[in-house]
Design a protein around this nucleic acid. Sequence first.
DNA 1: CGGTCCTTTGACACAGGTCAAGTAATGTGG
DNA 2: CCACATTACTTGACCTGTGTCAAAGGACCG
Lengths: 247, 247
Amino acid sequence: MGTGNFSVATRSLVHAPHRVDACELCAVRNVAACAPLSPYERRRLTPIMTTLGLGAQRLIFSEGEPAIYVFTLTVGMIKIYKRLPDGRRQITGFLFPGDFLGLVDNRSYAYSAETLTGSKLCRFQREKLEMLLSSLPKLERRLLGMASHEIAAAQDRMMLLGRKTARERVASFLVMLSNAGAGTGDQSGAIAVPMSRSDIADYLGLTMETVSRCFGDFRKRQLIEMVDGKRVCLLDAAALQRVAAGS
Amino acid sequence: MGTGNFSVATRSLVHAPHRVDACELCAVRNVAACAPLSPYERRRLTPIMTTLGLGAQRLIFSEGEPAIYVFTLTVGMIKIYKRLPDGRRQITGFLFPGDFLGLVDNRSYAYSAETLTGSKLCRFQREKLEMLLSSLPKLERRLLGMASHEIAAAQDRMMLLGRKTARERVASFLVMLSNAGAGTGDQSGAIAVPMSRSDIADYLGLTMETVSRCFGDFRKRQLIEMVDGKRVCLLDAAALQRVAAGS
DNA sequence: CGGTCCTTTGACACAGGTCAAGTAATGTGG
DNA sequence: CCACATTACTTGACCTGTGTCAAAGGACCG
């Protein structure tokens, strides 16, 4: 817990893989100008922070619940999702080590969060963290950077959901996994796909069957190869990228 | 320009409708704990800020362009959108007075922005604003609040695009307009719909024809009434809300 | 091994897309 | 203020991509 393990180290673009107690707010990915926290900042954060480990398929929090904590993921993979009253589900994101979750607009969570694989998280008391923010300007800036990044990603997702075809969506998903999950696959170049077909479907706004058919199609065209149910090898990443971008 | 006009005043939940020069970063809507800027903060912002007025259907900036400025909208309505290489378009948001645009992840805009109606904007030099942020903590907090709000809205939009039916999408759109545009309609309770059918379609991930058919359907069922092409009256807002929520 | 769950595959249905025509709103020049 | 052109919207007929339903593998597990 809190160990600068390989996964965090791989994803963190900003500091060496040594042990850091408040590491998770450092392990921000894809955010420019992301300096690591100072010892002072870490000292301020430690008291309101606990680390926790969870198995696969565990609920972290539910949509509508009071947002007592915010989290950063250090190991594993998480899905976040919303539901309509009749049960329809939209997965609004898959999260990777270094990602932040629980930042809220009002007092309660706007979505549910569930682990896909065994995971380790850093948990912060939300209200206390918010109070600390004013005296930790670097941290606040980092959160703003992460939020901007998330907004951009959300807009890409809207493009996908509103205007891409099923094949384009599945290709986009594979490309995304391959980028985001760099390092989570094995040495053979295969990438880990820990989520079920219906998770993928609910992420892409499709049905399980359509996702399966697209996988089949890509397999037939030699764009991918399935190592096993949970591992895919992108045989022609460039072609997939072309499909994903919409011809 | 910069006048605390009725529109800004209506939308701003946080301060009285007096004249404020750096008003636009105050005129934040739906953000908790949003205190107005101090005179000191305004003094810091004024030098890097200019105000501008634009006609309808004017391009503000384009996807991919270097992001020199960030803006706040004070009067009017704006659409922001992305395109696929073959021209397919997704409108990722309609913006109202008080909304912020141009916050970016990297150095260039991730989307294009275009006015729908005649509009007034406040323009800030992005890099200078970013440098100022550290010394204007309240402002930074406000941006973080706006960003959180936007993320929540984006997730709702993903639910809409991924899982709602055409009728539910159009109903959601009308409810959104009616909430967001409170005050932009006339006294009769009609709400302004300044965007074209194909704008609405590109926002909802549908075609113009389907949007038109849904309007027709709602009209037949007495849920709405069209005052003219650009004004709609919600006859049964509760029923629409029910449709929007997904039964 | 037999059961459970997940995935794949097939046959068919339908929501929403496409194409095309008609109608209303808006603008323009005289 | 009126012809006329232009653009936006509506409506209809038809088509297709994806959803639905059902059954048949496969993988995992006690």
